[in-house]
């Protein structure tokens, strides 16, 4: 959010395999998300979408495969390093800082990247807010439309608003890539419309957005490119129109018999 234009980066997940004990959660899943557009990842429950997100953001170490940001491998990088490298994300199960206010949640995100304030804060008597940080926080809140929540405790918000706060917090890290895990679940109709607008404008500004979402209408309306995951494997990808017509996708969603019938 430093300039008028956001610099997106090409996100590539290459051949990612994740195993939980004897359970193969992901088998060689690959995807590419281009800057300036929304790329979506859909699939039935348990298909491995969140697992792929965890592998991309570094929370899980995949057995095989790697994540690349603008062609640069992120292999071995911890999740916080990946976040500092420009990868921001939201969570399906909310991970807000419930004891802090909404504004403080966003402030941490702006300040978290640099650590040079530790020693100064530890030994100084004054801890004034940095006006530059506050400006970025206000911009992000205005963009998502939660400015009036600034002083509310984050833990007191309903799910829909919390998702918007998480989105604003992710934006505060000055990301190149935005990973959104079901951002519309729990949102009301008007809130979903607002989310639609926000994501469209972020993509127009140049950000790379990778979206996991069950609201198919939203996915079809937003995405340039859609990947379909089933039983841990990519079964299809293409434009919304291509994916809608793909028989394998229909089988995965509706069941084989229904398609055959």
């Amino acid at each position: 959010m430093s300039g008028d234009r956001l610099d997106g980066a090409v996100l590539e997940a290459r051949d990612i395999t994740v195993r939980f004990g004897g359970f193969l959660a992901l088998q060689g899943a690959s995807l590419v998300a281009e800057p300036g557009q929304v790329t979506s990842l859909i699939g039935p429950n348990g298909a491995g979408k969140t697992t792929l997100f965890h592998a991309i953001s570094g929370i899980l170490a995949p057995e095989q495969g790697e994540t690349l940001l603008d062609g640069r491998s992120l292999r071995g990088m911890t999740p916080d390093k990946r976040a500092r490298a420009g990868m921001a994300r939201t969570f399906q199960i909310l991970e807000l800082f419930s004891g802090l206010s909404v504004a403080e949640n966003l402030q941490v995100a702006v300040e978290g990247r640099s650590s040079n304030r530790i020693w100064r804060d530890l030994f100084s008597l004054r801890h004034p807010d940095n006006p530059d940080v506050l400006r970025q926080v206000r911009e992000a809140m205005d963009l998502v439309g939660i400015a009036e929540l600034a002083d509310r405790p984050a833990g007191s918000l309903p799910t829909g608003l919390s998702r918007l706060v998480e989105l604003a917090r992710a934006l505060c890290t000055d990301p190149q890539v935005l990973l959104l895990d079901e951002p519309a679940s729990g949102l009301s109709g008007p809130e979903t419309d607002r989310l639609h607008e926000v994501l469209t404008s972020l993509a127009d500004l140049g950000l790379t957005i990778l979206l996991v979402e069950h609201d198919i209408e939203l996915v079809m309306a937003l995405s340039k490119q859609i990947y379909v995951l089933d039983f841990g494997a990519m079964i299809a990808n293409g434009t919304p129109k291509e994916v809608r017509a793909n028989p394998a996708v229909r089988a995965a969603y509706l069941g084989t018999e229904a398609v055959d019938a």
């Binding site: 953001s57 991970e95 833990g155």
Partner: peptide, 12 residues
């Protein structure tokens, strides 16, 4: 409040 959230915004 949330270690995962803290990591996701780049906190070591």
């Amino acid at each position: 409040d949330s270690e995962r959230g803290a990591v996701s915004v780049g906190i070591s």
